[in-house]
Design a protein around this nucleic acid. Structure first.
Lengths: 197, 197
DNA sequence: ACCTGAACACCGTTCAAGT
DNA sequence: ACCTGAACACCGTTCAAGT
């Protein structure tokens, strides 16, 4: 059998994918840096070259998650028409789909909102969702499909609803069909709320 | 100086309050059972008499949190009028106030939604918020202040909004006045959304 | 530049034994 | 019933040393 080479090749990427796998399969509490190193076939000290701390690895994973989420959002907006209703539905469904498929990762992504040591890269990634909501409302107002009003205030109910929907989608204990119905109901509720009087 | 007695007196309660203090001051990652034991002046093995595992202590803390939250909700509903708008505003403000004052605890409370090992006591405590939203809508419908519709569906947008609002309140990076405005805006949005056509 | 080996200071949990 | 003391199998992180 071929001896493992001294250099791993791409330990950084390997650690990230291994971390995401165990995060998905066994949750954040079971994620041990030493175990990741074992699975990657390196010594316990090896990861520190690529991630100074365990938290740094988790932050990198969270940033990767935000990148995947926002590019999925952008892609779904590209595939859909220009009406406010269509765009809002697309964004909500994409976000919810991501939340359902990556619950633990999403919690990791938003879990460091409090920590003052959170990297600025992570902070700005978290704010992109708020910006997306704002863009959606601004576009709807331009098209006359959303009632007028100050943009920063108007976008908040949408932002709030999106965040709340993900809680519903990842909260467990709700059967899938009820979540499905809840999403439809909530999207309709939001659409009606933003419609010009 | 008086020697510490062999029996602590109420180690269980002491551990819970110490745990909440460090949770508030230093976050969940810094919470060590051994350190709690040191602060309580007992041996590392002592806590296991009252909480079989660290997770059992955290679950007990979460359940205590739900009890405080729901009793605060009930109290605020007692102090307010019977109109749907007044009751919805009271519930939202109380929930948000709790979220703002107990961010880390609230995350602990909802953090175990996925885990199949979560105690049934904790699971049912988590569902009480959904029930509260449903009761509020049902009452509003009886009074003719909420448009008719199937109760389980109708209550979802409210539940979603409440969950999303707490994300806003605990998400950091939003200045307090913006959160305040966001709460008002979102409450108004929800009220309008539920109003009979 | 990248990784190993060994060490350090911690954990959570268990279990015989003490009071 | 409640707690101690000591042990076990883990951690994350550091650092000299190897390739």
């Amino acid at each position: 059998m071929k001896a493992r080479p001294y250099h791993h090749g791409d330990l950084r990427a390997a650690l990230l994918t291994l971390a995401e796998d165990t995060l998905r399969a066994r949750g954040p509490a079971e994620l041990s840096l030493r175990e990741l190193a074992r699975e990657a076939g390196v010594s316990p000290a090896a990861p520190s070259r690529h991630f100074k701390t365990k938290q740094a690895l988790l932050d990198a994973l969270a940033i990767e998650g935000f990148q995947r989420l926002t590019s999925a959002m952008d892609a779904s907006l590209d595939r859909v028409g220009e009406s406010f209703g269509a765009r809002l539905t697309a964004v909500a469904r994409t976000y919810l789909g991501f939340a359902a498929a990556n619950g633990a990762l999403l919690e990791l992504m938003y879990g460091r909102k409090h920590d003052p040591d959170a990297s600025t890269e992570l902070i700005t990634a978290m704010h992109r969702l708020k910006d997306l909501a704002t863009d959606l409302i601004a576009d709807g107002q331009r098209r006359g499909e959303v009632r007028p009003g100050p943009l920063d205030l108007m976008s908040l109910p949408l932002f709030v609803a999106l965040q709340g929907l993900t809680q519903l989608a990842t909260s467990g204990g709700f059967p899938a069909d009820q979540i499905e119905a809840g999403v439809d109901e909530t999207i309709a509720f939001i659409l009606r709320g933003y419609a010009p009087s």
